[in-house]
């Protein structure tokens, strides 16, 4: 009991510290660092929403770039082609992400395990194909440039704080979600689908809802990304983006909320700094994939958990 209380207190302190850092640090660093922190937040939202499926419910999606990309393209098309406002673009992006996610979920949920991986992968390929070839809509290879933020969040630091508020909101929502009854059901499904079915749960519906939530928030990340980069191209939707999102979750620790954020932060920082040290950045990132899979399947949060258990054992003994 006391241990649990302590752990909760520790968690609160950690969250407060991170939040304080996120709020204060941009005031003391250069603009580039703020840009990088902003990237961490956006990819963090994508990783969080992927983790909802992967870590909590045990559905490994190999195509989250599709939902991210749908949000991104919908935003870009609305903003650059139709001159829509920030708010209008947001609504359309979320609706587009919802529709695409729903269709993909209907198809993908017919399969499980490795076939689920394969199908999500294939669906993402389809969305990429559209982004790449539906020229009149997406600009094809050219992508869509010239997406401007509204004037009041024009400068880097304001947009960073905007993203931070959104990310904090997403984090809060997710932590309420995973600690609710619904969240317990998710974990139940991960542990044993057949048992949940036997207990009378509509497993398919639960999975569908989780898929939808995950897709919607990925779309939200895409929306934020477009206004961040003011440009969108098929490379944002490609296979590598899906893989990177998976790597972020695996690196940080699937099945935790802090993990995806930690993973995305580390990944973004490495991605932006490796080439300052070496020309061989491909090898470095490749090795991270290999090392994480082989030696840290539970990610960094897994290590921390292990450490804590060890410490507790030492205390008790």
């Amino acid at each position: 009991m006391r241990g649990e209380l302590l752990a909760t207190r520790g968690r609160v302190i950690a969250i407060a510290a991170v939040l304080a850092f996120a709020i204060v640090s941009p005031l003391f660093v250069d603009e580039f660092s703020v840009l990088v922190l902003n990237q961490c937040l956006i990819w963090g939202i994508l990783a969080l929403s992927l983790d909802l499926m992967l870590g909590y419910t045990g559905m490994a999606s190999l195509g989250h770039a599709a939902y991210f990309g749908t949000g991104a393209y919908a935003t870009a098309i609305m903003s650059a082609t139709y001159g829509a406002s920030f708010g209008e673009a947001f609504v359309v992006a979320i609706i587009a992400a919802a529709v695409v996610t729903a269709i993909c979920a209907l198809v993908a949920l017919r399969a499980s395990d490795v076939y689920f991986l394969m199908i999500t992968f294939a669906l993402a390929m389809l969305i990429w194909g559209l982004a790449y070839r539906w020229d009149s809509m997406t600009g094809g290879e050219n992508g869509i440039a010239g997406i401007d933020r509204p004037l009041f969040m024009e400068d880097t630091i304001t947009y960073y704080y905007f993203t931070l508020i959104v990310a904090a909101g997403v984090f809060l929502f997710f932590s309420v979600l995973v600690h609710s009854c619904f969240g317990k059901t998710m974990v139940g499904i991960r542990e044993s689908e057949s048992r949940m079915r036997a207990l009378g749960y509509n497993v398919w519906l639960h999975k569908f809802i989780i898929y939808m939530i995950s897709g919607l928030f990925s779309g939200l990340a895409g929306f934020l990304w477009v206004y961040y980069n003011s440009y969108v191209a098929p490379t944002d939707v490609e296979l590598v983006t899906s893989f990177n999102a998976l790597l972020m979750v695996s690196l940080g620790g699937p099945g935790t909320l802090a993990g995806p954020l930690l993973g995305s932060t580390i990944f973004v920082i490495l991605d932006n700094s490796v080439n300052m040290f070496t020309e061989r950045s491909l090898t470095v990132v490749g090795c991270i994939y290999i090392v994480v899979v082989l030696f840290a399947p539970e990610g960094i949060m897994g290590f921390i958990k292990q450490l804590r258990t060890k410490a507790q054992e030492a205390n008790n003994g």
Binding site: D30, F32, L35, Q39, G143, S230, A233, T235, N272
Partner: peptide, 15 residues
């Protein structure tokens, strides 16, 4: 990658 060009040029300009 064109999208990455935006990020990289931003680095040149801001860092």
């Amino acid at each position: 990658k064109v999208a990455l060009a935006v990020t990289r040029v931003r680095k040149l300009l801001t860092r």
